[in-house]
Design a protein around this nucleic acid. Structure first.
Length: 352
DNA sequence: AACTCGTGGCA
DNA sequence: TTGCCAAGAGT
């Protein structure tokens, strides 16, 4: 089958099965010349990096309600944006999102660059996101290569080389299929195919628009592709956080450094997690009480066992680290998930 | 080039 | 319960 026939059959499938999403313009509307707002496409694509559609939906709604256009986001406070992103993970995305919005305003007159090349200059926009925004928002014939596309190409062309080594070859194969007509619909179509039919386990080959040309299916190995190099085992790390409650209800919090794990996010003072708990020095002297259950949390590359210490202190307490936040200004939802778990453990130990 | 960086859902 | 991994980018 010719490449153009492959993309045509996929577009036909997409016309009938495109999933509805808040940031998407459906194919029938795109056919009438309607393109989506680049700001919303960019925002959704950044949120969707390594993140499921289900997890993104509510965050996308809250962000676009609070900051309807890029200029509004650019004018937001860092802490507001980080708090709104809390729970979604990969917090460098939120820091770069804000930098990107400010760059669009300051360096591009408030309008997004309209080419893949221009988009690549924005912080937090890499090869995938630049292609996605260029194709979806501007109908540039850019090739999107995400995890879905890698999987679909590995199966369609029976690529046995394990990832990530296979990535360049998979990218070249994907490029041969990208059509000049409707590249925006096509980009969304390949990803929809990977997300709904050509899934990692138990792909639904029986209803796949590409079942005939699929080489992996012909060989019966579709469920085994793409192969992946074995990944390193996750070490277990340990640490301690101190949850300090002042007499008036204020909570001791600190903003974490910009770089590194949970960078720029709010959290409780604590130890480093790459060393032991040996040099654990609390932020102030107090009657610290251990929460009965430790917090367990798994990050991308390690498991964490976190001890939670709780204390109550008088109004004149002077901590060496962090700042007391009035109880009414403190929302657990503003914390990254691991810190929210620590808060819940502290409340279980010492409810108020 | 390999490592860092979150979280939730699912089998 | 544990491991897998989802619309990746930065260093």
């Amino acid at each position: 089958m010719k490449d153009s026939a492959l993309s045509a059959s996929l577009l036909g499938w997409y016309d009938r099965h495109a999933r509805s999403m808040p940031w998407r313009v459906p194919p029938a509307e795109r056919a009438r010349g309607v393109l989506p707002d680049p700001y919303r496409v960019w925002l959704s694509e950044v949120m969707l990096q390594q993140t499921t559609v289900a997890a993104v939906r509510d965050y996308f709604h809250r962000f676009t309600t609070r900051w309807p256009e890029v200029a509004a986001l650019a004018a937001a406070e860092d802490a507001e944006v980080m708090a709104e992103w809390a729970g979604l993970g990969y917090y460098a995305r939120a820091r770069n999102l804000l930098k990107g919005a400010r760059a669009v305003v300051a360096e591009h007159g408030g309008r997004f660059p309209e080419t893949r090349e221009g988009l690549l200059t924005l912080p937090g926009v890499g090869p995938y996101t630049a292609s996605a925004v260029a194709a979806i928002a501007f109908d540039e014939a850019a090739t999107v290569v995400d995890g879905n596309v890698e999987r679909v190409m590995a199966r369609l062309f029976l690529v046995e080389t394990p990832l990530p080594a296979a990535k360049p070859a998979l990218t070249r194969l994907a490029e041969t299929l990208t059509p000049e007509e409707r590249p925006g619909d096509y980009a969304q179509a390949v990803m929809d195919l990977g997300a709904t039919i050509c899934t990692p386990r138990k792909p639904a080959c029986g209803i796949c628009p590409w079942r005939e040309p699929c080489a992996a299916r012909a060989a019966g190995v579709q469920a085994e592709l793409p192969r992946r190099s074995p990944k390193a085992e996750k070490p277990v790390r340990e640490g301690t956080v101190w949850v300090c409650l002042r007499e008036d209800g204020a909570v001791l919090l600190e903003t974490r450094p910009e770089k590194g794990l949970l960078g720029g996010m709010l959290g409780f003072p604590g130890t480093d997690w790459d060393r032991g708990k040996t040099d654990a020095t609390p932020p102030l002297a107090a009657g610290w009480q251990a929460a009965p259950v430790e917090v367990r949390h798994t990050f991308t590359h390690f498991h964490l066992k976190l001890a939670v210490m709780v204390s109550r202190v008088p109004l004149d307490a002077q901590p060496a680290r962090g700042r007391f936040q009035p109880r009414e200004a403190f929302r657990p939802a503003d914390l990254p998930t691991v810190m929210r778990k620590a808060w819940e453990a502290a409340m279980a130990a010492d409810p108020r």
